[in-house]
Amino acid sequence: MKKNKLGKSDLLVTELGLGCMSLGTDKAHAQKIVEAALDEGINYFDTADLYDFGVNEEIVGQALKHVRDQVIIATKVGNRWNEKKEGWNWDPSKTYIKEAVKQSLKRLDTDYIDLYQLHGGTIEDHMDETIEAFEELRTEGFIRYYGISSIRPNVIREYVKKANIVSVMMQYSILDRKPEEEALPFLHKHNISVVTRGSVAKGLLSEKGLEKASASGYLEHSYEDLQQSISELQEKVAHSRSLTEIALRYNLANPAVASVIVGASSVEQLKDNVKAVNSLPLTIEEVALIQKIVPSHTYQAHR
């Protein structure tokens, strides 16, 4: 599988990364999916301390221990479970980040994290303190690189200006083209890679299509909009390939995107995603046609 350089780092990530949130808590089942991912050449695994109260990190760490030096493990920090584990609070403080990383390292059973990501962020955060924490963790050898997971233009701009981030994880798909106008060109200009999530738009851009649609639609798209757009995509673009292929290859057609992170709850689903990413790139004409079929929108908040 093709690999791309992640920003200014020396990390080479496969075009498909495994989103580990959907692995579940059955260790044997999760191990099968991770092993299948490794067999398919995937080297990029994304988790977070938030998933399953940290159990996800434990499962990922155990499943990858025998190939630790051959894979890239990304995890996230900033969302802090309350004592009763009924919800979480946002905590991007230096004190919390430097304590949380120790717990993540322990659960992952590793000496270092390849990519440590801030799991959110607001413009009101004390960013200098947050950045200081990440920089110190790099100096101390606990993390190799850091990035943020955010769709907020104002937050992204500040981190690009103030920090040495190598990546931004954000939601991006044919049905959510908001990053195209400002985020993707801006990050590409600054040599910061985008890692995408939500590329199949909750299954709407999979073979299930409208079966996954709700009566209220999806984001800015009404149900009627979805009916028309998905029907046109299937008829005019996906006539010789799957809708999942179109969806994942569309993300990778943008030069800012290094990898698409996609979850898989079964080995079969994983293999379908691998097939989609390994399919032929979209042509310039296909990209233009997709953009004609599905309108773009702009971010209204977090300016």
Rank of each mutant, 00 (worst) to 15 (best):
T283A: 09
E235K: 06
E135I: 08
L210G: 04
V194E: 01
K271A: 00
V67R: 13
L115F: 03
G209W: 04
D128L: 05
E140Y: 04
K65S: 11
E40S: 15
N79D: 03
K85P: 07
R138M: 15
L282R: 13
L226R: 08
L270H: 08
D52R: 05
P179C: 05
H29L: 09
R177A: 13
W88V: 04
R80L: 05
H188S: 06
K178P: 08
E15Y: 08
S266H: 12
A100G: 09
S206E: 01
V274K: 01
G263N: 08
T139C: 02
N79T: 09
T298M: 08
V166L: 01
I156S: 02
W88A: 02
K236N: 10
K275Y: 10
I293V: 05
S206F: 14
M21L: 10
Q70K: 15
I151F: 08
L108I: 06
K161W: 12
Y250A: 02
S259E: 02
A74T: 14
L115I: 06
Y44S: 01
V257R: 06
E180C: 05
K106S: 05
I192C: 08
E286F: 13
S104R: 07
V160A: 11
Y146M: 11
L252C: 03
I246A: 12
D225L: 11
Y172I: 11
Q227K: 10
T25P: 06
L243H: 04
P281C: 00
D176V: 03
T14L: 01
K84E: 11
R107P: 06
L64W: 09
E86V: 07
I290R: 14
E224R: 09
I148P: 15
S22C: 01
L50F: 15
L282G: 04
N191R: 14
A215I: 05
E211K: 10
V194P: 11
V155N: 04
N89A: 05
W81C: 05
F142Y: 11
L280G: 07
Q234E: 13
K212G: 00
S216L: 05
E286G: 10
S229M: 15
L282F: 14
